[in-house]
Each structure stands twice: as C-alpha cells, then as structure tokens.
Design a protein around this nucleic acid. Structure first.
Length: 423
RNA sequence: GUGAGCGUAGCUCAGCUGGUUAGAGUAUCAGGUUGUGGCCCUGAGGGUCAUGGGUUCAAAUCCCAUCGCUCACCCCA
C-alpha cells in the first residue's frame, strides 16, 4: 500500500470543518486590521532562504527540502514565509506604491525534521508581515491580532512571552559581556551549550538542561543591555499590550532561532500541545529587507502553527462546531423513478438547497436510514400511491409530520423547506 | 541526526507463561411482513495477526532483521 510520506498528513472531510472554521476566523481578524492576503509559490530559489533565514540556523543547515530542477537550479520548499513575502515585496516594488504594506497569509510549509506531536514535515501556518514602519504600534498590533485569534478559539492555557533583542550593535556588545561572564563556567555547561558558546552564544538561553538553567539565571540579561531606542520602543509595546488587556510576561531568555530578528520578539505558548508548546512566534526584523537586496525597510511579523492550534483546541475541547446537516433527502420508492428523482434533486440544488439522493438502488428503509445519518431536515418521497395521484409526500424529520404536494408545484415544496430549515 | 515504545478486521482494542477453524465493541451491508429514519433485535461480509527470516512437532504469541507509526531530544510553528 502506498502511504502518505513520513511527516505528511491527509486532512480528511471529517476534519475539514475545523480547518475552515480557523481559516475563516484568521481572514476575519486580519481583515479587521486591514492586512491584505498574499500568496507566494511553494518553492523558491534556495539562496533566498539561505540568505534570509541565515546559514547558521538549523532550518537552513539541516531542515530544508532542497532539490535541483532540470536546469540545475537549486530550489527549496518554503520552510517559512517571511523570506518569500519580502522577496515578493522587493520584486514588485510594493514599497514604492505605498509606504506601509500589511500582508497576511495561510500556507503550507516544509521542514525535514523527525515528526512528533505538533510537528510535521508539511505543516501549515498563518501569519502576517507589516513592512515599512519602525513604529512599536505595529509590534503591539500583531501580538494583539495573534492573541485575538487564539482567544476567539476559546483557548485558555495561553502564555504570551515577549522580549527585546535590541539592535545588532547593542546585541554584539552584550554578547561580549555574556561571553566574559560564562567563560569561567564554560566547563560546567552541557555539551550542546558549549557548542552554542562558540556558534551562537544567545542560544544557550534556550537550553532545557537543568544544570544549565542555574548558570543562565545568574548570567546578565540582554534586555538590560539593549540600546536606548529599543528600550523605549519596548516600553511602548508593553504599555499598549497592557491597555489592550493582553496578559504577557517579559521573558529575558526568549531569544529565537532565526537570525533576522531585532528589537521585539514574542511567542505565545500553550500547555496543551505536548512538548512543542509554541503556537505562535514572531518579532521585528528591521534589517532583513535590505539584506535581501531591497531598500532599507523595517518589518515585523509572526507565524502561527495551524496543526498545533487545532491540537490545542482538540485537547481543550474548545471548538463547538455546528453539526453537519443537509436540507433535503429525496427517497425514490420505485426504481422507474430514478431519473425523476435526479431531476428533482437538480431543481432543488439550483435553488441552493443541500440535497442528496440514493445512488445504490437501495430500499426505502435504507434510504431513510441514510437520510437520518445525513441529518436531513426534510425527506421527499417520490413514488407510490401519492405519485399515482400526482403528488409528492414531504416529511419534516424533526417532528415526523408528512404532507402531500402536487407534483407540478415543486416551488411550493421549496418555499416550505426554506421557511423551516432555519429552525 | 540520537533515544524509547508500539505495529491483530475501516476504527478502538482482547488474545495469560507458544497448542489446533483468530475474537469483541463500533462502523459497513441486509433483514425485523406488503411504502418511511432515529432506539432495539437478528444475520452477513471484512484479517497473508506490518514484512522477511529463524527457533519449535507447533508461533499472532519467542528471537533477529527490515519497514512503518508514536513520543521525546536537538530545533522550531
């Protein structure tokens, strides 16, 4: 049997309603903030991600789906969206048409990692990017939008963590301070953290090793060493979040794995999705666009994992979706009337009713069982005595009431159904 | 890339220390009198017990390998 590739999943009709519910909500919220949808190709030239995300990151270093096409160009399935949006922004000179551009997206992403709870190789994210302003209003705005979406899903066990990484100059200065502080304790760190010490010292803060924790907790924090402007902006972000009733906490250890972040970073985590608790993460990236060849343009954005969010919804049982139903099931009582049934179904479908009929030449009893299973609001019986006297019989399933209608007046049946399906 | 656990009907699982035709619930299908659902009852179909090899008189059950799945680490959404 041929199965879906490791780390990929089919989304079956049964679960589609949950996806659509979330997607509709995402569109609605972003739209209320006047973000415009953008769609970019699923693959890009590899160099875009290598430059945009950073050669040293794990994503670029070991997780990308990279292949050569027939003309030997190295292509990569997008592992995240920011680089693609920025590429499109630069390519179409969108910054020249208006000074501020606000985009949102819903899209599959690809990362070759070992799957586990809340992690797949093809997964889906929604998110946004606001390009063209350094205003901390935008930092706050995207956090509020992200929180609003999760909040509307009735998720309870949420934590918003924020931090500021400052500008590169202040961060480099801090790194030296941190290096000096940790140098003497280096031999006490875990093997992974010792590697990070040389490669990307900030990542030591991500360590989950307990013995590292103590050392980390006593180390100087980046947030205390950031530049004046970053500090002021961070204060404004915190103030705006408070005024909007976003329960957040400053986490000085929140550094994030992508190279392009500056100033504000944030994460929203849930305790209900296994060990991959981050539902959402993002921050400011004021230097990325220039780095990718565009005019110097500041940006902020975030990405949220759809599978993780749905997993949290499932574990918290927060999603109360309306049960599936159809408006009308047409029961064929005599096999000679099969085409008549089909014709009637076409008529009611054109009138925007949700209609089903039998295709398996089954008994009336079987058709009724099917109608019940489909949660049909009405059943129309075609055939038998009534049909001989030019009548159809309509049954209202909820009450069991039945009534005859003349065969040449399907319009009356339609009106009656339309009047009663809203109940 | 590393580690642990698990693979028996569509789904959830039982099958004790190896013993003969592999079970249940659920789902599916057909019936429960002449043309009507939900509850209930009866019956039917459906499994090369992941695959390959080994031990044994005998393997779903023990051993090995392969594949797959799950969870965790790394990292991230």
């Amino acid at each position: 049997m041929i199965k879906a590739v490791t780390g990929t999943k089919d989304i079956l009709p049964q679960e589609i309603s949950r996806w659509k519910y979330l997607e509709d909500l995402v569109r609605q919220i972003f739209s209320s903030f006047n973000y415009k949808e953008i769609r970019t190709p699923v693959f890009e030239e590899t160099i875009l991600f290598a430059r945009g995300i950073g050669e040293e990151t794990d994503i670029v270093g070991k997780e990308m789906y990279t292949f050569n096409d027939k003309s030997n160009t190295s292509l990569t399935l997008k592992p995240e969206m920011t680089a693609s949006v920025v590429r499109a922004f630069i390519e179409h000179s969108l910054g020249k048409q208006q000074p501020l551009n606000k985009f949102y997206y819903i899209s599959p992403m690809f990362r070759q990692e070992r799957p586990q709870a809340g992690r797949q190789r093809q997964f889906h994210q929604f998110g946004c990017e606001a390009l063209g302003s350094t205003s901390p209003l935008l930092d706050a705005e995207i956090i509020i939008a992200a929180y609003e979406i999760l909040n509307r899903l009735n998720l309870k066990d949420l934590k918003v963590k924020i931090n500021s990484l400052g500008v590169p100059e202040s961060r480099e200065a801090y790194k030296n301070i941190l290096k000096r502080h940790l140098e003497v304790k280096k031999h006490l760190l875990s093997e992974d953290s010792r590697k990070r010490f040389d490669k990307n010292i900030l990542r030591i803060f991500d360590s989950k090793v307990e013995s590292d924790q103590e050392i980390i907790d006593n180390a100087p924090k980046l947030i205390d060493y950031i530049d004046e402007e970053s500090r002021k902006d961070f204060e404004i972000v915190k103030e705006l979040l408070s005024k909007n009733n976003i329960p957040f906490e400053v986490d000085a250890k929140l550094v994030r794995g992508l190279d392009y972040y500056t100033k504000t970073t944030f994460e929203i985590i849930s305790g209900k999705v296994g060990s991959q608790s981050a539902l959402c993460g993002g921050g400011r990236y004021d230097l990325l666009i220039e780095q990718l060849g565009g005019a110097p343009t500041p940006g902020v954005g975030f990405a949220a994992g759809i599978e993780r969010i749905l997993l949290a919804c499932e574990n918290e049982k927060t999603l109360l979706l309306p049960e599936e139903r159809i408006d009308l099931y047409i029961v064929r009582m005599d096999s000679e009337l099969t085409q008549k049934t089909f014709e009637l179904a076409s008529y009611f479908r054109k009138e925007s009713l949700k209609v089903e009929i039998d295709y398996l030449d089954r008994s009336v009893k079987a058709q009724m069982r099917e109608a019940n299973k489909l949660n049909a609001q009405f059943v129309l019986f075609v055939g038998g005595e009534e049909y001989k006297s030019n009548k159809f019989n309509l049954k209202f399933m909820k009450t069991g009431e039945q009534k005859d209608y003349p065969v040449d007046n399907a319009g009356e049946i339609k009106s009656f159904i339309l009047q009663n399906i809203s109940i």
